[in-house]
Amino acid sequence: MGYFALALVVLAIVIVFSIVKIVPQGREFTIERFGKYTRTLSPGISLLTPFVERIGRRMNMMEQVLDVPQQEVITKDNAMVKVDAIVFIQVMSASAAAYRVENLPYAITQLCSTNLRTVVGSMDLDEVLFQRDNINSRLLTVIDAATEPWGVKVNRIEIKDLTPPVDITNAMARQMKAERERRAVITEAEGEKQAAIARAEGAKQAAILQAEGRKEAAFRDAEAREREAEAEAKATAMVSEAIARGDVNAINYFVAQKYVEAFAELARNPTAKTVIVPAEMSGLVGTIAGLGELVGLARDQQVERRDARPPVVARPVDPPRAPRNAVPPTE
């Protein structure tokens, strides 16, 4: 009696475990009734019919990563390259993935391998090396369409490694070095060109500034000469007016100033070894006296015509005398 009760307890436990099923998150279980698929269990707790229903396949509904093994592929221009990839898939229909294909990961891996050879073989080596995104998009389109009946969504395909032959790698290295050297030469030439342009522009600006400086200097010199000429003309006019008024001192001062300036210029002459100063400057005094008489006659005539007061004879002023014995300038 005790053994029978124990057997009943064990049978009840077995029946309970066969009826109650707990599906974890990210998984789905297929239910088979007498070997035929009937329904799919979602995550949570579910009850089965004892001795009739059982779990068929336990499917992983999370995104999975499959590694496509490395393989050698001949490109369109007969170059041998080694290519491998990784595939990101996700089961969307548990029943289709369970019952429409045997060994789903292996099937998807072989499908990726064959399509990878097809896509890479239809491209040149340069296209294979520099257009990985194009290869990835073409593989994704083809494989996603092929796995749709299996209830699988291919999210991404990425080329993980792509190795060309050694001789092609060496040629690519030499090509890259030559390209770098060419760019360096072009950059250096461009720098020299810009430097030459900058120097020419600087010389141009300097010449323009120098020309403007010379122009301004010439303008200033001309203006100074014009001012000097105006001052000279004004001085001459004043002297003429003084002579007309009978003032002889003005002409005497004017002649004496010119005489002193001429004598100073003679003394500054670097070629003159000796400067001779006349002992008597009576010639200059006589000249001044003669000019004084001429001025007096002019004044008398002006007074007679204007009925003015009697003319006053002005006494000429003697110019400053130079020393009798001049000392020759030192060389």
Rank of each mutant, 00 (worst) to 15 (best):
T114F: 06
I288A: 07
G151H: 00
S240C: 14
V9G: 04
V120Q: 02
I55R: 02
E28V: 08
D126I: 04
T287Y: 06
E127T: 08
K177Y: 08
T163V: 06
M59W: 09
Q301P: 06
P50G: 00
M123R: 05
K204Q: 10
N136E: 15
S122M: 12
G2A: 15
T38D: 03
V277P: 03
A231G: 09
R220A: 14
V68A: 05
E230Y: 15
R182A: 06
A279M: 10
G296A: 15
L41M: 03
G246I: 01
M80R: 13
T75A: 00
N134G: 13
T75I: 00
T30N: 00
P311C: 15
M92P: 04
Y37P: 00
V295C: 09
A196H: 06
E228N: 10
R220D: 10
E32N: 07
T30Q: 00
K177I: 07
P328H: 01
A146D: 08
A5E: 12
I186R: 08
F17Y: 13
V20F: 07
A171W: 00
P323W: 06
I55P: 02
I86Q: 11
T75V: 00
T271N: 12
K177W: 03
A107N: 09
E188M: 10
R132A: 08
P165D: 07
D144N: 05
E127Q: 10
I19P: 04
I19G: 05
E192T: 09
E241V: 08
T274V: 10
